[in-house]
Simulated scan of single mutants.
Amino acid sequence: MSWLSVTIDTDCGHAEPLADALLDAGALSASIEDADAGTPEETPQFGEPGSPTTPGWTRSRVVALLDAGTDVDELLAACAATAGLDGVPAYALEKVEEQNWVRLTQSQFEPIRVSGRLWIVPSWHTAPDPEAIVLVLDPGMAFGTGSHPTTRLCLEWLERSVTPGVSVLDYGCGSGILGIAAARLGAADVLGVDIDPQAVTAARHNAERNGVHVRFDDSAAEIRGQFDLVVANILSNPLKALAPAICAHVRPGGRLALSGILAAQTEELIAAYAPWLPLAVADSREGWVCLAGQKAA
Rank of each mutant, 00 (worst) to 15 (best):
W57C: 05
T10L: 06
R59L: 11
Q45C: 08
E268H: 13
F227S: 00
S60E: 08
A27S: 11
C12Y: 10
T150F: 08
R152I: 04
P164E: 13
A83N: 05
A182W: 00
W119S: 01
P52D: 08
I223K: 03
A282N: 04
W119P: 00
V200P: 04
T82D: 15
P238H: 10
C173Q: 04
V72Y: 10
L65T: 06
I223T: 07
Q198A: 13
M1T: 08
A181F: 04
A19P: 11
G165Q: 13
S31L: 05
G87H: 01
D67T: 14
G26P: 01
R184E: 04
E42H: 10
H213V: 14
A35E: 02
R113F: 02
P40L: 09
R184S: 03
D196A: 07
T150R: 05
P149E: 09
D228T: 09
I195N: 15
G84M: 08
Y91F: 10
L66C: 05
I195Q: 15
T163E: 13
D71R: 10
P238T: 09
D67E: 14
E208H: 12
E16F: 14
R117E: 15
P111W: 02
D86W: 11
T58P: 05
W276P: 13
A15C: 10
P40F: 10
G186R: 10
I270V: 14
D217Y: 03
T53F: 07
F109E: 00
C290W: 06
A199F: 06
L239N: 08
V289F: 08
A232Q: 15
I120N: 02
N237L: 07
I223V: 12
L66I: 07
A25Y: 00
Y273N: 04
Q294H: 03
G26T: 01
V230T: 01
G172P: 05
Y91S: 11
Q106F: 02
S284R: 15
L118E: 12
G13L: 14
V168F: 01
V136Q: 15
R59H: 15
D36Q: 15
E42S: 11
E97Q: 11
T201Q: 12
V114W: 01
P128W: 12
L258F: 02
S147Y: 13
F227T: 00
G254M: 02
L118T: 10
R255C: 11
S236I: 10
T39Y: 06
A21Q: 00
